[in-house]
């Protein structure tokens, strides 16, 4: 039952949160629709002439289609690193959860360390150079895996703890080896937490700025976040184009949000509280 007080409080909250949280996004949208002169006034107003399409074309064509290359790079990075994270993270979590012992206690400690300790930048570049993967997409993918594995393992572990061991026993009785047991029996049961991991990690990797900046420099390798940052110095007097770029980069997370709202919230909270 919602009482009149709830209606009043709700209405006030809607207005306040609209001003605080929605207006900045609307500002991005209207500025992206304006022509250059009008956009540079930085006003929060409806455009007198809508030129969103022209802006889009200009942004996409800027610097020899760099934004297109960047979207391809970001997609490659996100898809590959998240796929590796899901498979390796689930394998690690399965063994750590099912087999308590000295080795797994050390591993548990390392997982927590990975969550807390900030990575050392130049020594990581040095390590990448030693194995010949500095300035390569493969190197950056492995970096995202190394830095994201802790959170992934914690999410999977919390979920695997709720799967009864009888399931493993049944599989073992049927003669399944470890690989078959894991990939044909356990992995399918993890579906809901896999969705959570995929959504949470792909948002994190897609939005990552610092790691591509350090470990994959160079224009031809740029990810969308780096392109946006570079555009911000190039487009200082072309706010219409800068905000068109911001608008484009906000679309993938928006789609994720619309489709997976529930899993995202569930993932962020469950992993966080249990970790």
């Amino acid at each position: 039952m919602i009482r009149p007080k709830g209606v009043l409080l709700g209405s006030v909250s809607i207005v306040v949160s609209f001003v605080i949280f929605v207006v900045p996004f609307l500002f991005v949208l209207v500025t992206a629709m304006k022509d250059r002169n009008e956009a540079n006034l930085l006003q929060f107003s409806w455009p007198t002439r809508i030129v969103l399409w022209d802006n889009l074309v200009q942004v996409v064509q800027a610097r020899d289609y760099q934004l297109v290359i960047a979207f391809v790079n970001s997609t490659t990075l996100t898809v590959c690193s998240v796929a590796i994270l899901v498979i390796l993270g689930a394998m690690v979590a399965f063994v750590l959860q099912r087999r308590p012992g000295r080795w797994t206690r050390i591993a548990d400690f390392l997982v927590l360390a990975g969550l807390i300790v900030p990575p050392a930048v130049v020594p990581t570049i040095w390590a990448l150079q030693k194995i010949g993967l500095f300035r390569t997409m493969t190197g950056l993918i492995l970096i995202e895996v190394a830095f994201g594995i802790s959170f992934t393992v914690l999410l999977f572990k919390a979920f695997i703890a709720t799967i009864p061991r009888e399931l493993d026993e049944a599989a073992a009785l049927d003669g399944a080896g470890p690989i078959r047991m894991f990939f044909q029996v356990i992995f399918p049961v993890l579906r809901s937490v896999i969705v959570t991991v995929v959504v949470v990690q792909s948002v994190a990797v897609f939005n990552d700025f610092a790691n591509p900046l350090y470990f994959l420099p160079g224009d031809e390798n740029a990810t969308v976040q780096l392109t946006l940052f570079n555009f911000s110095s190039q487009f200082t007097s072309q706010y219409n184009l800068l905000f068109t770029d911001i608008l484009l980069i906000t679309i993938p997370p928006l789609l994720m949000f619309l489709f997976f709202n529930r899993q995202i919230v569930a993932g962020q909270t469950s992993g966080a509280i249990k970790g």
């Binding site: 390796l88 993270g89 063994v95 087999r99 080795w103 594995i149 393992v153 470890p178």
Partner: peptide
């Protein structure tokens, strides 16, 4: 052992 420790190895190497 149905929970082989080598499941940890690929992730451990990268990490």
């Amino acid at each position: 052992n149905p929970y082989p420790l080598w499941f940890l190895i690929p992730a451990a190497v990268i990490y």
